[in-house]
């Protein structure tokens, strides 16, 4: 029964990683860049939500919407100011810039909200329920997290599969020049991708802090890196891959914390990453794409 409990908790934290990983994977797939500031957008989302509930006293749902709106705008601004001017230059320049943006966001958060941790109040108010005579406890956070992550994945799959905008995104992801020849505005599409990724980051931030309630300027950075790992394990660029990678990583992390060692849990997670990449270099669900020469 205990194993089942850890499995459920692992899936829940993994679902948060999955939502973050979706942002990484979409931006990578379409803009062909690793947005290392993505984790910090999560942190901003959590702070916005925190402020709206604690200082303005508004309900949780309003705080989530506010966080999503602020992060969407933030994502679009970051892309327009930091990444767009570098389009067509070396990917290394973009990568370094992303790391710079990440530090910028952390330091800005420190200036605004201070470095002392805030105690985040969970957005979930309903009580945990027990199964199997109290041996299995499923918290409201677990249920909400899993439900939201599934909704997001289904939503994104439908969006990219069925809508005109979503198909345009896939076209840009596959061949930017050919997409332009179809009349698709590539800049606008990339901007849209950042908007969606950042809105997801806001949701992830609120869910993350509802489960692990310590909120500080570096809150997003480690989950961001784990989620990036998850995206790579699943196959970067792939939506179901991000979901699978996130959940796998959450479960591995929870089990290694419980049965092996808390300190080594990250080491174990990254060892798994290396193993998977040795066997499947494109990730579990990634497509083997041939580089054109």
């Amino acid at each position: 029964m205990q194993i089942l409990q850890y499995l459920i908790n692992g899936i829940s934290i993994g679902a948060v990683y999955a939502i973050i990983a979706l942002g990484y994977t979409m931006v990578y797939g379409i803009a062909k860049m690793l947005n290392f500031a993505h984790g910090d957008v999560i942190m901003v989302g959590a702070y916005i939500s925190f402020c709206v509930t604690n200082y303005l006293g508004l309900p949780a749902i309003v705080s989530i919407l506010a966080a999503m709106i602020v992060c969407t705008v933030l994502g679009i601004i970051i892309e327009a100011l930091a990444y767009k001017p570098l389009r067509g230059t070396s990917s290394l320049a973009v990568l370094i810039t992303a790391i710079g943006v990440s530090y910028f966001l952390q330091n800005a958060a420190q200036l605004i909200w201070g470095s002392a941790p805030k105690n985040f109040t969970s957005i979930v108010t309903f009580k945990p329920f027990s199964l199997a005579g109290g041996e299995l406890v499923i918290t409201g956070e677990v249920i909400i997290t899993i439900v939201i992550s599934v909704l997001i994945m289904v939503g994104l799959t439908l969006f990219t599969g069925k809508t005109r905008m979503g198909k345009a995104m896939r076209a840009v992801s596959e061949d930017r020049d050919a997409a332009q020849l179809m009349g698709i505005n590539v800049n606008q599409t990339i901007s849209m991708t950042f908007a969606i990724g950042s809105a997801l980051a806001a949701v992830a931030g609120v869910l993350l802090c509802s489960t692990v309630p310590t909120l500080m300027p570096t809150t997003g950075s480690m989950p961001g890196i784990r989620a990036f790992t998850a995206a790579v394990i699943g196959g970067i660029g792939s939506i179901p891959g991000a979901m699978l990678g996130g959940i796998l990583l959450g479960v591995i992390e929870t089990f290694s914390k419980k049965y092996i060692s808390t300190e080594f849990s990250d080491a174990i997670v990254f060892a798994v990453l290396i193993l998977i990449l040795l066997v499947k270099p494109a990730g579990l669900l990634g497509k083997q794409v041939q580089e054109k020469v």
């Binding site: 005109r164 198909k167 896939r170 076209a171 596959e174 061949d175 020049d177 050919a178 009349g183």
Partner: peptide, 22 residues
């Protein structure tokens, strides 16, 4: 364009839809 540059991961129908994107 040279080399066709169709969207290889999309269906034929979706490629045509992209052609009518505007």
């Amino acid at each position: 364009p040279e080399g066709r540059r169709i969207f290889l991961q999309m269906t034929v129908q979706e490629n045509l839809e992209m052609g009518a994107y505007i």
